[in-house]
Amino acid sequence: MPSETPQAEVGPTGCPHRSGPHSAKGSLEKGSPEDKEAKEPLWIRPDAPSRCTWQLGRPASESPHHHTAPAKSPKILPDILKKIGDTPMVRINKIGKKFGLKCELLAKCEFFNAGGSVKDRISLRMIEDAERDGTLKPGDTIIEPTSGNTGIGLALAAAVRGYRCIIVMPEKMSSEKVDVLRALGAEIVRTPTNARFDSPESHVGVAWRLKNEIPNSHILDQYRNASNPLAHYDTTADEILQQCDGKLDMLVASVGTGGTITGIARKLKEKCPGCRIIGVDPEGSILAEPEELNQTEQTTYEVEGIGYDFIPTVLDRTVVDKWFKSNDEEAFTFARMLIAQEGLLCGGSAGSTVAVAVKAAQELQEGQRCVVILPDSVRNYMTKFLSDRWMLQKGFLKEEDLTEKKPWWWHLRVQELGLSAPLTVLPTITCGHTIEILREKGFDQAPVVDEAGVILGMVTLGNMLSSLLAGKVQPSDQVGKVIYKQFKQIRLTDTLGRLSHILEMDHFALVV
């Protein structure tokens, strides 16, 4: 994948999101292997301009796509893939009243899908469409860049269908997702969380590099694949309309690839034109409109599966009536509230959605109805927002919020430890010299600072030695090549209790 991002070429006709291997024109390309080798690009942008032909009021008969309808489940399912879809609609009884809503608040519980998330729908649909058009064949390999849930859905379907599955996901995604993927037989590649989507090191860039190296491999490409919004247009939206008897006044959905909100909203605009569509985008993402909503100094966020630093091709923002931004604290607070007060075992993005819903639905009156999409299960986040310690460490809970008995030293300040200034190293000294210094002084790690004293990161003896043994660096290389740029900081005025929580999850903390 090139470091400079080429513009994806656009073909003359058809839909841009065809499933299957992508040609340089962004659509299915038939021909000899030699032709494909000559024409197939190194990668295709996940934010390529959409060429979708959908228009409100256009006859369904003019759609270029294969459409399906929700099917009634048999008493005995032939395999677990038949437990994807037909998820329950559940009334939220307490939270709406707590925040003064007059309307009825309903939750579409997508964590009841077989793999635990709304992404099971698009995973199965992308595979079925690729099999139907002859792209996927027995023994082929599926590769997908994902925040985890699409990966789980694909790995689940691949396990049943017999495909090899490789999932490329950023490091910030939970260990629970990784464990589930491994249990399903998927191979996992992790990428830096802070890598831009168009960087060769991003999950998108690495996935395309693997595709170019592995024979008979395919990126189904949830960011561009029409099967993504079509899955929701054909099934999720129809289920909502049936469950609500066609009567709903507002739908609120958090947005990642945009397939969920695009597919549902398009069908609702056709069948229930008075329904307002509300999009939820986390602070630090750029999906919301108008652009002024996205202006923030924050560039990272903890909530998973929603928000991006690019506009995915499948996201149709014209069908969203209003956007709201959400933050991590309210997302996790509301997710825990949904679990504790409503018994809905949902993930953090569901918290984002409901946090926005109780604001947006203030305009609705008694007798009206708001539906929220709860995308995934708490299963993926047992060591994250479900953990009091994690919430404390991230600053989303305060010590006084917890009532468990603490040891005698818990409320003492870090400054009472009488710490001395640490050994520091410059980023320009060599790895070999740094190892000598650390061994001589008896230290395992040291902060790396520039000549102005600005902290650049941390270097550890173990990481340097393993990097040297693996051949990633040489003793003569500058130590700046092996620094940890993500590390926890703590102030002298913070409590030892807070430091204790940090050290339970990290090997060190830097006192500043």
Rank of each mutant, 00 (worst) to 15 (best):
T141H: 09
K119H: 00
D245V: 09
C272Y: 11
S254M: 05
A107L: 03
W54F: 08
K97W: 05
G205D: 12
G162N: 00
E171A: 08
G185P: 00
K177E: 04
R45V: 06
M126I: 08
L136F: 08
G11I: 03
E187R: 06
P70R: 11
S73K: 11
R182D: 05
L124D: 10
Y163F: 06
G31Q: 05
M126L: 08
P74T: 13
I95Y: 00
L241R: 08
K269D: 02
S27N: 13
G256A: 04
I95E: 00
F111G: 04
I92F: 12
E9W: 05
R190N: 07
D221R: 00
G246W: 01
P33T: 10
P70M: 12
P88R: 08
K137F: 10
D221Q: 01
P41Y: 10
A107T: 07
E176T: 00
E128G: 02
K269S: 03
F197W: 09
K39N: 14
G96Q: 03
L248F: 14
P2R: 13
D133E: 14
L220M: 03
C52T: 01
P138F: 10
E239S: 01
K269A: 11
P88D: 04
S117V: 03
D198M: 06
D120F: 07
C15I: 05
S174I: 00
E213C: 08
G96V: 03
K172L: 01
S147H: 01
T191S: 05
G259T: 00
L56H: 09
T53I: 14
I166K: 08
P192K: 06
A183Y: 01
A231K: 07
K82P: 09
E9Y: 05
L42N: 04
E144T: 00
S61N: 05
P70Y: 04
S73W: 12
D79W: 06
V160M: 08
A107R: 02
L220G: 03
E40A: 10
G100L: 07
P273K: 14
S202L: 02
A158K: 02
A265T: 13
A159Y: 02
T235R: 05
E29H: 12
T135W: 11
K82G: 10
T68F: 14
G96S: 11
K97Q: 12
G134L: 07
R132A: 10
R121K: 05
C165S: 06
G57Y: 08
P138G: 14
P88C: 13
